[in-house]
Structures are given as structure tokens and as C-alpha cells.
Amino acid sequence: MTDKLSVAIAAGGTAGHVNPALALAEELDARGHTVRFFGETRRLEGKLVPEAGFDFYPVNVTGFDRARPWTLATALAHLAHEERRLVRAFRADASLMPDVAVGFGAYVELPLMRAAARLGIPVVLHEQNSVPGLANKQTARSAALIAIAQPSVRAVFEKRAAASTRIELTGNPVRRSVLAGDRARGRAALGVPTDATLLLVFGGSLGAHHLNQRMVELKDRLLGMDGVYVVHSTGADDYDWTREALALTGDQARRYRVQAYIDGMGDMLAASDLVLSRSGASSVAEIAALAVPSVLVPYPLATADHQTTNARFLVDAGAAVMFADADIDGDAFADEVVGLLASPERRATMHAAAADLGQDRAAARLADAIESLKR
């Protein structure tokens, strides 16, 4: 039986960092371990972590803006101060001292990772993306374990990590609320018949407009297919434009639902037969975890084109097809989306390929790896 651990987690800034960390925390908590988060109260983690019921210890760091080099001095001063403060706090309070410290890649992880390394506490890093962030690259040499979500990132960390560092492909943890998605419940919420074919479309908070434009152009062709329903999440900024451009009639609106964002992603994915989306790390992880066939259109302005590499993870497995953003205006894109909607056989093959990736077990694999570490 594994000894119960006290695990400190640092994750912040964006949902792409915080949600995988919460997924791990849920798994560790279910196994009886104690979890405490370290982050900034004014950022997303300061809201999501307390809402999830986990202890939260505030740290105060300042990011370095490469466009303003003079901010480096302030950032380094804040980092050093917070590192010293955490070392003192851990030494003064044995209940606060963790057995393992886990960082999910944002700069907010640095004080905790450095304090842990100074005190001999095993450091674990998790990298969600196919292009490692600066914080994880800086911390790699101190890590006992680096968990990766994409095979392509292994080579980067092999060059930066210590010889003793373990690098394991665990996948990107997905929250239990998503994994618990239910097809019948999702379809009931949407008013979609059980025998219909459902296309779910979402583009994320950035870069959704081109996808939304293309969906406007494809609306009539999609609704001309028997039994096809569409749920189209536009992003908040593009909702009014898309709704007006679609100009749905009453009959069309019964089969084509347009909304600003997706509430209850697990149920929506489980209800879907095909997904059309960008390929951010969290989107790819959730699509794979629910084993939904997908058409992926990487956001073309993503740093180092990492969304294309993210998408290849599913494409290479046979679970998805990919189109460059510049190519979605062509007939090949439209024909592929329509062809997949018309072919339950192709979708079944893609579903099986996605299920074989085992992305739904990513949080468990990461928790297993953490449990294997001893202070």
C-alpha cells in the first residue's frame, strides 16, 4: 500500500495549465493523498482551485515580458523573494512541507520548484504542449520526473534534464467532470434525437472567427443531410456576428444550435459523433479522452505552431484528420467533414483509434508516477 503523500502543485495563468493540475489533484485526493496548490490569487487559479475545494497558498510572482526587457530585473527579484519565503515557511511548519512538488509549466511554478529543489523535495514537471514552456525548460535539470503529454517533446527535455531524470509519457490529465460525460444526458440537454448524427464545433477563445465564417458557408450543405444536427460554439467575442451571419430560420434552429461557449464539455463531447475544432492541448486531451472522431484545424498563430504538433498526436494514431487554417476554404475540407458525417464506419474506426490512446487514464498514470517517488 502506498504511503499517503503531501503533494504541492503549482499551476496558473490559463485553463490549459490549471485544469490538468486539478485533474491530477482529483486523482490524488481520491487515493487519500493531501494536495495543496500554490498560485496567484488574482489569476485563474485563485478562482478555480478554491471552487474545486483544494487548499490554496498564495505566491506573488511577476512575469517577464520579452517585449520589455527591463521587466526581467523585477521578475527575478520577485522570484528570489518568493523562493526564500517558501523555504522559510516549509522549515517553520512541518505540515506545510510537501513530500513532492509538481509544476504545470507556468512561471508561477518557479518559486515552489526552486524552494523544493533547495530542500531536497522531489520535483515533478508536467508539460501539456508539444512545445515546452520556458518555466519547464528552466526547471528541467532539477526534476526527478518530467511527465509529457506529447511524444514529440521528449527530445527537448532529454537535452535539458539531468541524467537521473525520468521522462514518462503520461498524457494530459482530464478532469473527472469531463470524463464523466454521458451521451444520453448530453443529447437530452441539447434536444438532439438518439439516432441523429451530431457535429460539435468549437474554436476556443482565440482564432475562432475563420472557423465560424466557414461554418456559415457550410450551413446549408450540412442541414441538407438527413439526420445531421450541429452544435456550434462561436466564442463570446464572435457570437453576435455568427448568429447574424447564419440567419437561421425557425426550422433550421431546431437542428443547428449556436451558442457563445460550451457548458458541460464532458456531456457535449460524449453526445457528439464528430468534432470540428482547433487543437489546443486541452482540447486534444479532452477529445481523445472521450474518443470522439475529430477534424482539427490548428490555430495558425500559435507559438512555434504547437497546435499542429498537438493535432498530429491524434492524426498519426488514426483518430483525427487535420487541415491547415489556410485550407479550410477549399472543397476538400467541406467534402471531408460531410464525408465523415455520412460514414459511421469511418467514425467507428477513428473512435477505436482514439480509445486506444488511453488518454482517459492520463491522471492515473501521472499519479502512479508521483507515488513512485520517495523523499
Score class of each variant (00 low, 15 high):
H306P: 04
S283C: 13
A245V: 06
A270V: 05
N310M: 10
A281F: 03
E286H: 06
A304I: 06
V295R: 09
M268L: 15
F313T: 06
L218H: 00
R243F: 12
G330N: 03
G235W: 14
S277E: 07
A289Q: 10
A247N: 15
V228W: 12
R214H: 06
V337S: 03
M225D: 11
A236T: 14
A304K: 15
A291N: 02
A260N: 09
G318K: 02
P300F: 06
E336Q: 05
A271W: 03
L223I: 09
I328W: 00
H306Q: 07
L290K: 13
H210D: 14
Y239P: 02
T309Y: 14
K219T: 04
V230S: 09
A334I: 00
A291M: 02
S279I: 05
S282T: 14
Y256Q: 06
A326Y: 01
L340K: 00
S279W: 12
V231M: 14
G264C: 09
G280T: 00
G266C: 10
A324N: 11
P298F: 11
L269I: 05
F313N: 01
A288H: 02
D325I: 04
G250F: 12
G207V: 10
G235H: 14
V297H: 09
D329N: 05
R257V: 05
T303A: 13
A302S: 15
S283R: 06
H306T: 00
L301V: 08
V292W: 07
S294E: 08
Y239H: 15
T309P: 00
Q307N: 06
V230T: 07
M322K: 08
